[in-house]
């Protein structure tokens, strides 16, 4: 069964075309890496797939549901790690996750599990502002998987992570459908059997209608 079906996703920021007719079909449990230079449209594509941004044109179905009509319902299925960690600096790592437990309607018993998964148990009491950039990224990953999402969308998740990033990311992606934008081709090859390359908002690949490069 397809988890993601996107047809002709196009997005304009004013007169600037950020994404130009990208198609993508992703089966349940499949992992795909989105590659491309800066400004290629990776973040725009990921934000649309996460339903954080409505495309100017195109259609998106997630788990068989219209992604923008059923947006609120789909939020239970989607875990999104944005480009910036988006943490509350004055709150501790645990309090950051506790807050999202209330918003996601998730039991607080899950906090220990996710902090363990990302290796932050020992610094859970520290304020987010006192964590290193890598630890902040781990905390943001913990928040993205807090509600055990079926679809995980990760925008440069390896940013600031240390050498064991691939193991950590492989662990959180296991058993889930995942879309990961990265500049690290080696990491993409290791974690994702499929790759989508974007350039100037367009997906590369031949023939023209086959936008996903295997």
């Amino acid at each position: 069964m397809s988890m993601v079906v996107a047809n002709g996703l196009t997005h304009r920021f004013g007169s600037e075309l950020a994404l130009d007719g990208v198609d993508l079909v992703l089966d349940t449990g499949e992992h795909i890496a989105v590659l491309g230079d800066n400004g290629a449209g990776k973040t725009t594509l990921l934000r649309i797939l996460a339903t954080a941004l409505r495309p100017t044109l195109g259609r998106l179905e997630i788990a068989g549901l219209d992604a923008f009509r059923e947006r609120r319902r789909l939020r239970h299925y989607i875990g999104y790690l944005a480009h910036a960690p988006g943490l509350y600096p004055a709150l501790s790592a645990r309090e950051n996750i506790e807050f999202f437990c209330d918003l996601q309607d998730v039991s607080r018993t899950r906090i220990a599990d996710v902090l363990e998964t990302v290796g932050l148990v020992s610094v859970a009491h520290r304020r987010a502002s006192q964590l290193s950039r890598g630890e902040q990224q781990r905390l943001a990953i913990a928040r993205a998987i807090l509600h055990d999402p079926r679809l995980l969308i990760l925008d440069e998740p390896d940013a600031s992570l240390d050498a064991d990033a691939a193991d950590l990311l492989g662990g959180v992606m296991r058993g889930r459908t995942a879309v990961m934008a990265t500049h690290d081709h080696a990491l993409a090859n290791r974690l994702c059997p499929r790759t989508l390359v974007l350039r100037h908002g367009r997906s590369l690949g031949t023939p023209a209608h086959l936008r996903v490069v295997r």
Partner: peptide, 8 residues
Amino acid sequence: EAMLMTPA
């Protein structure tokens, strides 16, 4: 955005 990405 993180807050609005929740079902809340």
